[in-house]
């Protein structure tokens, strides 16, 4: 199979130049749970050159309704290991690097990353991640809770920090209520924005897309 054949349908849409940009992009996906499992899969399918995955979790039963990379057979296994295995089955031309562990302020970002997908599930780790990013890094944030979600792109050093924008946001105690369809919609929007950012045409830079899944409502909040 020729590479051209694999990507034919999307190249018909966005052209060869943008496909080349994808193939040289290095993206870090922070969190391979609900959002991260779908975001990383869409990036791999599209042909992003190199993916770095960060997580410290094991696959558990409450993950399976929304974390599309995992199956019943994976229960108890490392999410990172399974994710790499599945992503390479989907697209063996993509390089996948694993960064096991939990993100805190001592997290060391590999030097060749320009784009980061915040697929984390808590504000503390999100704020710690942002602190570790060098100036100029594009951070695509996603979040979801019940029927409300948001996607936002920040350029570190130029944009307001995520920690400042989301000061006072509430981290619910215990497990956060989410559905599989809602998670996949927000993850799809994150992937859409990541492609735009990689192409040099971010749509949500300093602009939060607020998604109401209950009544299918979209609005924007400039930050």
């Amino acid at each position: 199979m020729a590479v051209d054949e694999r990507y034919m349908r999307q190249v018909l849409h966005w052209g060869k130049e943008k496909q080349r940009r994808l193939e040289t992009a290095r993206v870090l996906v922070a969190g391979i749970g609900g959002l991260g499992a779908t975001v990383s899969q869409l990036l791999a399918r599209a042909g992003v050159g190199k993916l770095y995955l960060v997580d410290d979790g094991l696959v558990d039963w409450p993950d399976l309704h929304r974390q599309l990379l995992y199956t019943e057979a994976d229960i108890g296994r490392s999410k990172l290991d399974i994710a790499k295995e599945r992503l390479l089955q989907i697209n063996s031309t993509v390089r996948v690097e694993l960064l096991p562990g939990r993100i805190d302020t001592s997290f060391k970002l590999p030097a060749d990353i320009s784009f980061v997908a915040d697929c984390l599930d808590n504000y503390s780790s999100r704020f710690d991640l942002e602190v570790c990013l060098p100036s100029g890094t594009f951070l695509v944030h996603g979040g979801i809770e019940r029927e409300q979600g948001q996607v936002l792109t920040l350029k570190v050093g130029n944009s307001q920090p995520l920690a400042e924008i989301f000061s006072g946001a509430l981290q619910p105690a215990g497990k956060i209520p989410v559905t599989g369809d809602g998670v996949v919609i927000i993850a799809g929007l994150m992937a859409n924005e990541l492609f735009s950012v990689i192409f040099g045409q971010p749509k949500l830079l300093n602009r939060c897309l607020v998604v109401g899944l209950g009544d299918l409502h979209l609005s924007f909040l400039d930050v």
């Binding site: 609900g34 984390l120 979040g143 979801i144 809770e145 989301f166 509430l170 998670v183």
Partner: peptide
């Protein structure tokens, strides 16, 4: 002025 309760999960 904006009032925005963001979603925390992922």
């Amino acid at each position: 002025i904006a009032f925005f309760p963001p979603g925390a999960g992922g």
